[in-house]
């Protein structure tokens, strides 16, 4: 376990596809770029990441004195087959200097305890990360060698935990279906997740910037709704983009006028 680990990114771009977990700050800073949703994952007691998940997220008490640890992650909500919109044709990140802290910390993952980080260095199928001894040592004696990005992302996650907990309390109160969905998701062998909307987060946290964020999200959601239309495999993504487009339409107009639901029409295709 205490072996030194090597890692070097070869810029294959493969880890820049699909869902991208973000900090709240990164999510809002990129509201004009990413379609934003909130991904909820639940862990059962006894799971290795339980304590860290409970610290960075929340816990949910179920019947029979059972408890789940729940992580709520602001996310660039993209299908697995979709590249991040910031990924350039040369497989390089086009916003490298400003990329989200999630991307800066790769391949480490501060949602997990530091001592389990070595496991994350094993490239997933199709990833071309160099983990040979020719690559620099990145993990040694159960610790990350160059740790600034990891520490910064962990710090951001710790700082935003109270806001996410407030959001979780709100959702458990007003959306009882979520409790059932998380319980179900946690009982599956493969970790599954549940997705909720930006509008619910903005409402729960009384975000004063809701109108501006909604206006930034509108063209993004419209674009992704168009690109996912007509593909049965992407039906859930498509429906969420369309739903959120309608919700953001309302929020973007709320301060300007007092619209009725008839005003918020989504393109239908």
């Amino acid at each position: 376990m205490s072996a030194t680990r090597h890692f070097q990114c070869t810029i294959c771009g493969q880890c820049c596809y699909g869902l991208l977990p973000l900090t709240c700050k990164d999510a809002f800073a990129n509201a004009a770029r990413f379609p934003l949703g909130f991904v909820w994952t639940a862990l059962r007691q006894g799971s290795k990441d339980y304590a860290m998940t409970a610290t960075l997220g929340t816990t949910l008490t179920l019947a029979h004195r059972k408890e789940l640890a729940v992580m709520i992650t602001p996310t660039a909500y993209l299908p697995k087959s979709f590249p991040c919109p910031a990924l350039g044709d040369d497989n390089r990140c086009s916003i490298h200097l400003n990329k989200p802290s999630r991307c800066r910390t790769m391949p480490f993952y501060p949602y997990r305890d530091e001592r389990y980080q070595a496991e994350l260095l094993k490239p997933r199928l199709g990833w071309a990360c160099d983990t040979s001894t020719a690559a620099p040592v990145v993990f040694k004696d159960h610790q990350i060698v160059l740790r600034d990005d990891f520490d910064q992302e962990r710090q951001a996650l710790l700082e935003q935990a109270p806001v996410l907990r407030r959001y979780a309390d709100y959702m458990f109160k007003y959306s009882p279906w979520l409790v059932g969905a998380l319980t179900q998701a946690s009982s599956q062998t493969k970790t599954r997740s549940v997705v909720t909307s930006l509008s619910s987060f903005l409402t729960a946290t009384r975000n004063a910037d809701a109108g501006r964020l909604a206006r930034l999200q509108l063209p993004v959601l419209n674009d992704y709704a168009t690109r996912t239309g007509g593909d049965a495999q992407l039906a859930e993504f498509h429906q969420n983009y369309r739903n959120w487009f309608q919700e953001m339409t309302y929020l973007s107009q709320r301060l300007d006028a007092s619209p009725t639901c008839a005003d918020a029409s989504v393109r239908s295709d």
Partner: peptide, 26 residues
């Protein structure tokens, strides 16, 4: 009837801001 002002107005004051009007409009 898409008359959600009524729904919002008839929330008790302490929970009125919890009403996710955008979601309800959809």
């Amino acid at each position: 009837k898409c008359a959600l002002d009524h729904v919002e107005r008839t929330h008790a004051p302490e929970v009125r801001d919890d009403f996710n009007r955008a979601d309800a409009e959809r």
